[in-house]
Nucleic acid binder design. Structure first.
Lengths: 325, 325
DNA sequence: CTGAAAGCGCTTACAG
DNA sequence: CTGAAAGCGCTTACAG
């Protein structure tokens, strides 16, 4: 019923195998034949049948994107954005996206297994990087190519990671604030766990030490927010908004009484005033690089796998929440 | 290399076609044979090859999920949540999800075309419902089964829609506030467009009229927020937060000076204090119903298509932003 | 540079 | 209730 490669072949007066070669723009085919075949393709409105191609070639040309379990986390905007970025980049190379989501690890793992076992994907892009993760273990055991967005702590050097340099971001935050004249600076977090926290805080602490400045870590909702600090480095935008709210309720003003700088440049950063001065983590590049890395990884001989860590640049977005002392 | 249906057949001592029938639990096969075949399947760790099944059957068992262009909109959390809900429900019926996203309509449309033409999907779930939409037009022309989450205004009765009753939600907001003793109530929006706004506002206005109360529409950022109102019905949570911020900055208190009720129960609703009293729109059910509706639609004879509108119940979540006058 | 043929791993009438 | 066979629409050695 639908137009097949045979119809095109008949119309162009060639063999089906020739049409197939033209479709992948094989250099073996003469330009004349290519033109002839392409004409037939256009006239007939031919489209390749994805399933047939996959079955015959054994290549799915689709990447499974794995979301963290418990998507209820407040940092959701990130995931939709990176999914969009990944999909956009994948389109460029004619590859498709499948997804694995779920509320529990078991559910996600089940989906990952299914995608792989039913041969629906060539491999995965994993959108989280917990210290240890059964999904990742499975992929390593099965020798499935995959790429991580983030950096797990036990940085198994064999992993292929795409990430920002969170440590450097922490340092830069301090550098920016000291450049504004601040010296009494604290780091505010609502958690003591997670690589993102550890690295950003570590960077903050290292830079403060380097400048011989006294540094303090404040755990939000557990410890007193008010001290003698004139500036705060806050783990992310959503927390930044909360921190500022506390100050406002206490009759203080940001950035007049205290400057605040945060990370991520998410939708939270422009929700309220003062709008947040924050580091943009470049989600689009993060997604694009993940796809590119995956593609080069899976096209390579299994052996030559030169896994590596790819660092995506960040950028400080100066808005309203931080200013000269 | 991988285990195929033939391997299973050989081991179980039956024909491949029998294995295929057992896989879909055909009632034609005897229980004894089924047991035998299933044993072989387990022992061999067999998994069906998705592409082969799709090619042979012509059914992809996958649904394309279409996101609105310009995902940069602030209401993003909704999309990740409904994607998760859709995926969860789809899993139950062994169907997969493909996605179409993009920054412009053309890009989204291109992807939709591709998914359909390459026979990667059986149809679509469209996550938006603009008044007129070229993507939707394409699907209608091509007679592709699809389901809408939302309700387009020119409510072409032939469409299959899943939605909350936004008009009723608008009325309920008024009923709740009047129940709390409020009579001077305004509706706050940051737009005059979109079905969601129109229906929620319409419901608000109708109920106010019904109660012979004077009603007012305030467009945020264009018109003065402060009036003699004691309560505000706000289009969505994100706007609710902004509205409250304006009051706080003016030295007023919510809900002491003014009660606020919003819609969606998104992550914004519990971000700050006062936490928002808001209508939960039940995204999980929205997603599940969309999948179920799609499945019943596409399994049905093309003719008998009994498209319909499915209404998902909402629920008022009472938190801190509204109280007795 | 192009063709003929086998094959990818299923499904599904058709027989019996 | 089960089997044998054809076929889904491609890809890709193998020849020439």
């Amino acid at each position: 019923m639908a137009v097949t490669i045979k119809d095109v072949a008949a119309r162009a007066g060639v063999n089906a195998s020739t049409v197939s070669r033209v479709l992948k723009d094989s250099s073996e085919i003469s330009d004349k034949t290519k033109a002839k075949v392409r004409k037939a393709i256009d006239e007939l409105g031919y489209r390749r049948n994805a399933a047939a191609g996959i079955l015959a070639s054994g290549k799915t040309n689709t990447i499974g994107v794995v979301f963290p379990p418990v998507v209820g986390k407040s940092n959701q905007p990130f995931f939709m954005q990176i999914l969009t970025a990944i999909n956009a980049e994948a389109q460029k190379s004619q590859v498709s996206i499948a997804i694995a989501t779920g509320h529990e690890t078991e559910e996600v793992e089940r989906q990952v297994r299914l995608l792989h076992q039913e041969k629906r994907v060539d491999g995965f892009i994993v959108l989280y990087a917990g210290a240890s993760d059964s999904v990742r273990d499975y992929m390593m055991e099965e020798n499935i190519p995959f790429v991580l967005v983030g950096t797990p702590s036990e940085s198994d050097s064999k992993l292929s990671c795409i990430d920002n340099d969170n440590h450097l971001m922490g340092r830069r935050a301090v550098q920016y604030l000291t450049g504004l004249g601040h010296e009494r600076i604290a780091f505010v977090s609502n958690t003591r766990r997670g690589e993102v926290f550890k690295q950003r805080y570590r960077g903050f602490a290292d830079e403060m030490d380097f400048r011989e400045l006294k540094q303090r870590l404040i755990i939000f909702d557990e410890e007193e927010l008010f001290g003698d600090e004139t500036a705060l480095v806050v783990l992310d935008d959503a927390l930044g908004i909360k921190v500022i709210e506390v100050f406002i309720r206490a009759g203080k003003t940001v950035p007049k009484d205290v400057s605040v700088i945060t990370f991520n440049n998410s939708i939270f950063s422009t929700l309220l005033h003062p709008q947040l001065t924050t580091f943009d983590i470049n989600i689009i590049q993060l997604g694009a690089a993940a796809v590119q890395q995956f593609l080069s990884l899976s096209n390579k001989d299994e052996e030559k796998a030169d896994e590596q860590k790819i660092i995506i640049p960040f950028e400080l977005i100066e808005r309203e929440s931080a200013r000269k002392l």
